[in-house]
Simulated assay, not measured.
Amino acid sequence: MTTIHPSERRRSLQRLFPMVAAALTLTAAAPATAQELEKTELNVAILPTMDYVPVVIAIEDGLFKDEGLDVTYQVTTAPASLNGVLGGTYDFAGVTWFAFLTAYNRGLPLVAASELDRGTPGYATIAVKGDSPVKTPEDLIGKKVGVLSTNGACDLTLNDVLLKDGKDYQSIEYVALGVPELVSTLMTGGIDAACLPEPLRTPAMADNDLRDVLDLFTGPYEDMPIVGYSTTTRFRDQNPNTFAAVQRAMTKALEVAHTDPDRSREVLSVYTRVGPETAKTAVLPTYPTGGGIGDLSVVADLMDQLDVIDGPVKVPEQ
């Protein structure tokens, strides 16, 4: 896998990715039969957030089965998801692009089969209790903020907002928590604020006296790629037909999620605790269509600005 230096060639990816998507469409035009697949039974990891709607649609609507794949999933946490796919516990897992690029730049053998979603206003916010003295992002300096994973969209976006305003964000303590613990820990005072993605955000705001202090995916962060559906380069190289079949199924599932928001909300009750009525009002992310991987330079640029890793962040050619 070759790499591009972000300061010199990153913007060329905006022209590259549409061509990659077209190439994937051509090479994946004829589905492999079950006999041609190197591996037909897959174990994948998901989190109980809306990022994973396309994966569940692909399972529930038989899109994986149409490709000869028998896919089962396990609901887990962000760290366990990444460690599990690298360690072979899972064949595929959703990995945030921040974690993906961090792992890739450290030489870990990750490869993305598909995008899952991109950010939209209202999809994820940093919230506090109604009686909290915190009124603005600046007020979070020196406080504890609950996130699903560190060095992710929640903490890096908040840090960047503060950095652009000339504020020192480094005294913020980020606490990684599972989805079920975010609201309860906030309400009991274990943290001062919590990053709440959908479908957690809608019921949390309705059932508790909470208010937002930062809407993550607005302004320069709107449409930011959030999660990629990933595996290891070893799995891809040993199972090229299976990898291609997963890509085809995910392309179809993303099309369903994009064009049928009602279906996206329906599947939430399959893998989360959100009921149908709550799901009707949850804010959806953008589910990209067309195959391939979108422009990751916005993610890499943000990581560069905040010195997430040593040296400039390199972006893989997908």
Rank of each mutant, 00 (worst) to 15 (best):
L302K: 10
R273C: 04
R263I: 01
A206K: 14
L210N: 02
M224I: 06
T40I: 00
L37E: 07
V56I: 15
Y104E: 07
G292F: 09
S264W: 03
K144G: 01
A28C: 10
K143D: 03
V20Q: 13
Q238T: 14
K252E: 08
Q74L: 07
G146E: 04
A249N: 03
V267C: 01
H5Y: 11
M1H: 10
L254M: 09
K252P: 03
E222G: 06
K129P: 05
R236G: 01
Y221F: 15
E8D: 12
M50I: 07
P312T: 10
G291N: 11
A124P: 01
G275D: 15
V147S: 09
L110P: 12
R234I: 12
T289K: 08
R118H: 11
A194W: 06
G87Y: 05
E266P: 03
V183K: 07
V145L: 03
L24V: 08
G84P: 14
A279Y: 11
P31I: 08
F64D: 00
V20P: 06
T49S: 14
T102V: 12
T96W: 09
A193Y: 11
E60T: 09
A32P: 00
R263M: 05
A28M: 09
R236Y: 10
T242V: 04
S171V: 00
A257G: 09
Q238N: 15
N239A: 13
R10H: 11
K144L: 00
L296S: 07
A22L: 13
D215I: 01
N43F: 13
T150Q: 14
G292Y: 05
I59D: 00
V274W: 03
V95C: 12
F92W: 07
T218W: 03
V179C: 01
L110I: 07
E38S: 04
D215M: 03
E255P: 05
